[in-house]
Computed example of a mutant assay.
Amino acid sequence: MLKSSARILARGRLKALAGAAVVAAGLLGPAAAHAEKLTIIVGGMEKQIYLPAALTNALGYFKDEGLDVELINSRAGVEAENELLAGAVQGVVGFYDHTIDLQAKGKFITSVVQFSQAPGEVQMVATKYADQIKSPADFKGRTLGVTGLGSSTDFLTRYLAFKGGLKPGDYSLLPVGAGNTFIAAMKQDQIQSGMTTEPTIGQLVKMGVAKILIDMRTPEKTVAALGGLYPAASFYVQASWLESHPKEAQKLANAFVRTMRFIASHSAAEIAEKMPKDYYVGDKDLYIQGLAEGKAQFTPDGRMPAGGPETVLKVLEAFSKNVQGKAIDLSKTYTTTYVDNAAKTLGN
């Protein structure tokens, strides 16, 4: 089931009460009359970077594990993170970099399954400014679009500007979301450049509204832009929930790992056929094209890419006063235990 995040906090207390029922249901297994109910919030369900969430649901892999998973849509990853910390949901599909950012603030969340090894993000520049903005150094004096302040697009934009030799006061960041709101902001000259994902990228290019400035949709292009693989989209939970709900976490990992294998072994067109039709935003061919161009961002097995956490930490330390000077224990930001167990269960 797909829902909006608008009512989540109001239901937070009910979710907490439901936790006991989830634990009890876990003792019954997949054959139980009532599937285990879990709620996962996604930082933009329609974004291709978070495709594994809806795809797992569409393929029936949650149900195969005896789970009743409710997927709730959020405007940006930072909103999803806040819902998790409030206890309103059990898990988040969002960017791994939040695990490091939050640890610096004394809060611990853990990535259980790593969906991608590249951000899947692209820095776009409005067509009418393409001859003026040719690198991050040209962001000076400009307004740059991000999904939300404190979001991963915020982090990555700040890093690109830092690499371009700019200071925070040299440019402005404007939260404009994704999809239609991002497109409108660029059309109306509210932003001159901005970071977004597919299918918004393809729409902007097709309409002639914007051009690609920096592409981070593949591992190779990400290494060129950021200096290494950048683990991005992931499934993460509060460390305390993971410790008390290992059975539920394992079932979720089993489902997600099956999905990552499906993505690796099927074409963009075959994957698109499984997705909700409204995700195509009226242009299925363009959706497939975008997925084909960025499909390499996804991990084939849900594992954390070697050296990835170190790259993310390096990026955040470059500009984030919150992270700078903090002793970050990367081993506490992710685990491979559940993915490893899933591989043993599913076989090679």
Rank of each mutant, 00 (worst) to 15 (best):
E65I: 04
Y129T: 03
V93L: 01
K140L: 07
L346G: 11
D301V: 12
G12M: 11
D138N: 15
G177V: 03
M216H: 03
E36H: 11
A232L: 03
G87W: 10
E36P: 01
I183E: 15
N180P: 00
I191R: 05
F155P: 01
A224M: 08
K187W: 05
A104H: 08
A18P: 00
P246I: 14
V89S: 03
L27R: 14
F108K: 07
L28E: 12
V22I: 10
T311H: 01
V257S: 02
K247N: 05
E317K: 15
L84C: 09
L85H: 08
G164D: 09
V122M: 02
E36F: 10
E198H: 14
G228F: 04
L229R: 06
D189R: 14
Y334V: 07
S172H: 15
A21H: 11
I8M: 05
P309R: 14
A104T: 11
S135N: 13
A184G: 04
P300S: 14
T196S: 07
A249L: 08
A80F: 07
A342L: 05
A210R: 11
L229Y: 03
T311D: 02
I328H: 06
I133V: 12
L102T: 06
L38T: 03
S111E: 08
Y159M: 02
M216Y: 02
R13H: 13
I271R: 10
L59E: 14
K128R: 15
A249E: 07
I41P: 00
Y280E: 12
T218M: 03
Q90Y: 04
A35Y: 09
P168R: 15
D170P: 00
K221Y: 04
L102V: 05
Q117F: 02
S320Y: 11
G164L: 08
A296R: 04
Y287W: 11
L213T: 11
R303Y: 05
Q192K: 06
A268T: 13
A269T: 12
E317T: 14
